[in-house]
Amino acid sequence: MSDYTIESDPGAAAVAKILEHWTTDLGSDRAAYTNHAIRVLRLCDLLHLHYGGSADELPGTREEFVVAAAFHDLGVWTAHTFDYLPPSLDLSRTWLADRGESALIPLVSAMIDDHHKLRPAGSRMSPIELFRRADAIDASLGVVRFGLPRREYGALRRAVPDAGFHKRLAQLFVTRVRQHPLSPAPMLKW
């Protein structure tokens, strides 16, 4: 991954292009969130390969994964809330409908809605579960890896830096706990 660039990765470039539409909403967190979304997309590819999937069918080349990666947490910034699944879902559905991709709405919606599910959301190769695992790896800074070698996640983090994403998550969580102590993590599901 030492030669990796976002521009050389069509899926990553597509995520970055989508997120350009929300530059103002993302503000100083633009690089942090864009890089997180790209890491999640790349982690889908790495898990797919690790589980024996074909290099010719990488998830990062598929529209549903690109859109889910771009929108999965975006509601944090557009709706200014840590209860961000509903606004993230609305944004992704509108995006797909406006582009004539309504057939992808059910799958992308499930990928986003279940990405913080605490239990498996299907077989390890299902799009929903693959996406859930990829996000969990990045959100946990690689503490949770679902069998992915530590060195692969480390190489990805070097290629696509954190840019303050995890610091921002911690700040948002602390704010949420102070404001809603009985509901600190509304995005989590069983």
Results as ranks from 00 to 15, higher is better:
Arg151Gln: 12
Tyr84Ala: 06
Leu49Trp: 01
Pro106Met: 08
Leu19Glu: 01
His180Lys: 15
Leu169Cys: 13
Arg30Phe: 11
Val108Ile: 09
Arg62Lys: 15
Lys167Cys: 03
Ile38His: 02
Leu49Ala: 11
Tyr4Ser: 05
Arg62Tyr: 10
Ala155Gly: 15
Asp83Pro: 04
Leu118Asp: 07
Arg151Ala: 14
Gly142Lys: 03
Arg133Met: 15
Ala79Ser: 15
Phe146Gly: 04
Ser28Tyr: 05
Arg99Cys: 07
Thr78Tyr: 04
Arg150Cys: 05
Pro86Gln: 03
Asp98Tyr: 03
Leu188Asn: 07
Phe71Glu: 01
Ala185Cys: 10
Asp138Ala: 04
Asp114Ala: 08
Leu130Asn: 06
Glu63Gly: 00
Lys17His: 11
Ala121Trp: 00
Leu74Tyr: 01
Ile137Met: 10
Glu7Ile: 04
Val108Cys: 07
Ser123Cys: 05
Tyr33Leu: 05
Asp56Cys: 03
Leu182Lys: 11
Asp73Trp: 01
Ser2Ala: 14
Leu43Ile: 13
Glu64His: 01
Ile6Asp: 04
Asp83Glu: 13
Ile137Phe: 04
Lys189Ala: 13
Ile105Arg: 00
Thr175Lys: 15
Pro186Gly: 11
Glu7Met: 04
Gly164Ile: 03
Glu63Leu: 03
Pro59Glu: 07
Ala155Glu: 15
Arg158Tyr: 02
Ala139Phe: 13
Asp98Val: 08
Pro161Gln: 06
Arg42Ala: 05
Gly53Tyr: 05
Leu91Trp: 00
Tyr33Asp: 06
Leu130Cys: 12
Ala32Cys: 08
Gly75Met: 03
Arg178Val: 12
Ser183Tyr: 07
Ser8Lys: 12
Leu156Asn: 01
Met1Thr: 11
Arg150Thr: 12
Pro127Gln: 07
Val143Gln: 13
Glu152Thr: 08
Asp73Ile: 02
Arg132Tyr: 08
Gly100Thr: 12
Gly147Ala: 10
His72Tyr: 06
Ala37Tyr: 01
Gly100Trp: 10
Phe131Tyr: 08
Phe173Thr: 14
Pro186Lys: 04
Gly147Gln: 10
Ile112Met: 05
His36Asn: 10
Leu26Asn: 07
Tyr4Val: 06
Ala12Lys: 00
Leu19Cys: 09
Ile38Arg: 02
Arg42Asn: 11
Arg30Val: 04
Tyr153Val: 14
Asp135Asn: 15
Gly147Asp: 08
Asp135Leu: 02
Gly154Met: 12
Asp56Gly: 09
Ala32Glu: 07
Pro87Ser: 10
Leu172Lys: 06
Gly142Tyr: 06
Phe65Glu: 04
Leu19Gln: 05
Pro120Ala: 15
Ala79Val: 06
Ser102Gly: 15
Trp22Gln: 11
Gly53Arg: 13
Thr175Glu: 12
Thr78Gly: 12
Asp25Phe: 02
Arg30Met: 07
Asp73Lys: 12
Ile6Gly: 00
Pro186His: 07
Ser123Val: 06
Ala97Met: 07
Thr78Met: 10
Ser88Leu: 09
Leu89Val: 13
Phe173Pro: 02
Arg145Asp: 09
Thr34Leu: 02
Pro106Trp: 05
Leu47Pro: 02
Asp90Val: 05
His80Arg: 13
Leu43Arg: 01
Ala139Arg: 02
Ser88Asn: 10
Gly11Pro: 00
Glu64Gln: 05
Asp90Ala: 15
Arg151Leu: 08
Gly142Leu: 08
Met1Cys: 11
Glu129Leu: 12
Val108Tyr: 00
Thr94His: 09
Lys117Met: 10
Ile105Val: 15
Asp90Pro: 02
Pro181Gln: 11
Asp3His: 14
Ala163Asn: 11
Arg158Glu: 15
Thr61Gly: 13
Leu47Asn: 03
